[in-house]
Design a protein around this nucleic acid. Structure first.
Lengths: 198, 198
DNA sequence: CAAGTTCTGAACCGATCAATACAAAACAAC
DNA sequence: GTTGTTTTGTATTGATCGGTTCAGAACTTG
């Protein structure tokens, strides 16, 4: 029995997330968040309590969305496991080179936040740890399946290979953010996959 | 015919560099820089003109120092080329896990700055581009030598393999910053090297 | 319509931001 | 020692930081 919100909380969260993604945590001011969301300061602080909590929710939302998309690719039963890993790497390339708001890759909010905050913000570190574990779990399972059906030839442990693929993905994102062109990043993906399948 | 500096400019620059390395550009205040260098504000602004220029010089110094160290490893004529690449990757692991000032890896100031600034600071982007080109040049030459002497078996182009190794290095640093343990990061290095030599 | 609750906008908080002004101190050259 | 220049510490600039306060508008409920 009170006045209802005039805005959609999820839409606001999404706008905030994109702002943190583009500028990072420190370089995003509360005024930037007001402008991006279209909300007043009161509405933001009333809803999200602080810049830090708004960031934590933005990051959690991003990681969840991305992990779901990754899982969808990796669990596509219509393809052999090795092809799913290839599709994942190709998706990273597409992510980095499509939809560039200002002609430059924004990279990955997970990677960006690892660099900016993991060492000094325990909650961010916790979210990132959980996300890494989740993605490694899916990746490892798919790679193990690929080793069983022969589409992945490497004899290394599937956990180690999963960490390897995950690290290469991070490296591809850094390369793209550093200005590497699409062919260069794609060739990193191709080379990395070669280590798995042959 | 005037009063000489009471401080060593290089030592001050080094202290500033370490501060930017640990906290990033945005999260480092000019007061932090005064404390770290032991200088007053006047001395800093008199010597380095602005926070931005001090950062640019810090980054340039870091990149130069690191690239020299990398070149030293890669151009060690006493080892076959493939072993030099292995030594480089092992050095990255050692860098990330030795000398951790607060129990966490600081990562690499080059990678950190790519994430934080490459998209929005043209001078930082220029320094990072030049550094990447330099490191890729050395890496590619060593890989090509390894392909000639047979220590590197991959038939891919040496430039593509150099970009690959460079991306893996970036991924290893992100993984370490994200909390991966030493064995995990070392296994990424081993797996990556496997793609080259076999 | 009246009562009760929540939301919203604007003004405002002390703190801190990067950067500057300025005068006194410190030194080199003569 | 005097002159001329630079450095240095302190005080201070206006702007912006993240966050709060508060009054009144807005809306649900009865």
């Amino acid at each position: 029995m009170a006045r209802p919100r005039q805005f959609d909380e999820d839409r606001a969260l999404d706008a905030a997330m994109r702002t943190f993604w583009e500028y990072g945590y420190e370089a995003t001011s509360t005024q930037d968040l007001c402008t991006a969301t279209g909300l007043g300061r009161s509405s933001i602080y009333n809803t999200f309590r602080s810049k830090r909590e708004l960031f934590a929710r933005s990051l959690a939302r991003y990681l969840d969305t991305m992990a779901e998309a990754q899982d969808a690719v990796l669990e596509d039963a219509s393809r052999p496991p090795a092809e799913r890993v290839r599709a994942l790497l190709d998706k990273i390339v597409a992510d980095e080179f499509d939809h560039r708001p200002h002609g430059r890759s924004l990279g990955c909010l997970g990677v960006n936040s690892t660099v900016e905050l993991a060492a000094r913000d325990p909650e961010a570190a916790r979210l990132l740890d959980r996300d890494a574990a989740r993605r490694l779990r899916t990746l490892s399972a798919v790679i193990a399946a690929g080793q069983r059906d022969g589409s992945i030839a490497s004899a290394r442990g599937s956990d180690a290979l999963a960490r390897y693929v995950n690290a290469v993905i991070g490296g591809m994102r850094i390369a793209a953010q550093g200005g590497a062109d699409r062919a260069a990043v794609q060739s990193v993906a191709d080379t990395a996959l070669g280590a798995l399948i042959s």
